[in-house]
């Protein structure tokens, strides 16, 4: 099965630096095959370089797609992650 979802990013630094690392770890942790896309460009969510190269800033819309068993719950976890701000004040 394939699940897909569009999320607006809440982190004030977008998906750069530490938030990117945390996101990739979270994506790896779901065990599902997940891609993240911004506009036309789609990358493997388990790739920190791919994720950073999307250049996601706060407020950008990204589309998550997951394949396989547990796809929906993987997306629940990642959506939750994306709407939260992970930067230090």
């Amino acid at each position: 099965m394939t699940a897909t979802r569009t999320v607006s990013v809440g982190s004030s630094q977008g998906l750069h630096a530490r938030p990117a690392k945390l996101f990739v770890e979270a994506a790896q942790g779901t065990g599902a095959q997940v891609t993240i896309a911004k506009g036309e460009k789609s990358v493997n969510a388990a790739s920190i370089l791919g994720v950073m190269s999307l250049g996601v800033d706060k407020g950008d819309e990204v589309t998550l797609t997951a394949e396989g068993e547990g796809a929906e719950s993987a997306l629940d976890t990642l959506e939750e992650f994306l709407v939260t701000d992970h930067d230090e004040a």
């Binding site: 630096a17 990358v43 370089l49």
Partner: peptide, 16 residues
């Protein structure tokens, strides 16, 4: 340490 761990992730990145 956090920065170096991010580098380790880059080294093992699927894109690479």
């Amino acid at each position: 340490q956090e920065v170096l761990e991010a580098q380790v992730m880059m080294a093992q990145d699927p894109t690479v």
